[in-house]
Amino acid sequence: MARGIDYGGMMHRAMQGLIADVLQGVADGGLPGEHHFFITFDTRDEGVQMADWLRERYPEEMTIVIQHWFENLTVTHEAFTVTLNFGNAPEPLYIPFDSVRTFVDPSVEFGLRFETQDGDEDEDEDDEDDADDAAPDAPQGGAEVVSLDKWRK
């Protein structure tokens, strides 16, 4: 029997799908208006393909910018490829969506952050309990944490 509904995994895949849809729109029609993206990914992910010299320079993670100059943007359900210019040297990158850590479009103050899944499920449950205990003190820097109970009737 199933343990329950994996809402976290479903949300993770949905957010990856959103990024894929956005990138596919850019591949089809270019960047609209002032939109541009900062995408941070884990260069240690086994599926990432990049030049050796870039991997040496960015051994853990790398942030790319898709804005003024990019070519060959292609998108699949699992990954995207793009050629970017690094000091007048065009380099192709293959980036699986599972390696993406952040996706930000600063032109509209939109961003997604993916947490790594490298922990025990029990640890995650403990973290959730701690988060519930800390919620009343959490707002710092302009954000407000609101309990779902506030919206229930």
Rank of each mutant, 00 (worst) to 15 (best):
G142Y: 03
P139A: 11
H77K: 11
G25M: 04
G17V: 09
D124A: 13
A143D: 07
F37W: 10
S99M: 05
F37K: 03
A20M: 09
Q117Y: 01
F37T: 07
E46T: 07
G33W: 00
D118P: 03
G111V: 04
F103D: 08
E115H: 09
G33E: 11
G119D: 13
I5Q: 05
F103N: 06
P96N: 05
G25Y: 10
P90N: 07
A51F: 03
V22T: 15
R101A: 11
W69G: 07
I39A: 01
V145R: 03
A135K: 08
H35F: 03
W151N: 04
N72S: 13
D126M: 11
G141D: 14
Q140P: 00
A134C: 02
D42T: 09
Q117D: 11
W151I: 01
I64S: 08
G111H: 08
M15D: 09
F114W: 15
Q140E: 14
R13E: 14
E34A: 14
A27C: 06
D6N: 15
D124S: 09
A20W: 05
D124V: 13
R3A: 13
T74G: 03
P136I: 00
P90E: 07
S99G: 07
V146F: 07
L73I: 10
P59I: 02
A138M: 13
A2M: 06
A131K: 10
M10A: 13
V22C: 01
D133S: 07
P106H: 10
T43A: 05
A79R: 13
H68T: 13
A51C: 05
D118N: 12
H35M: 07
I19A: 11
F41I: 08
T63G: 12
M50A: 15
H35L: 04
M1T: 11
F110V: 03
P96W: 00
T63V: 11
G4Y: 03
Q67G: 10
W53H: 12
V108S: 08
V145H: 06
L23M: 10
A20C: 05
D127R: 14
E121W: 06
F86M: 09
I5D: 09
L93N: 06
A79T: 01
R57I: 00
F80S: 07
S147T: 13
I64C: 04
G9D: 02
F38I: 00
V82E: 09
D133W: 02
F41R: 08
E128C: 01
G111I: 06
R152P: 00
V82Q: 06
P92D: 09
E56K: 12
E78F: 04
F114Y: 15
A2V: 08
E109V: 03
G4F: 04
K150A: 14
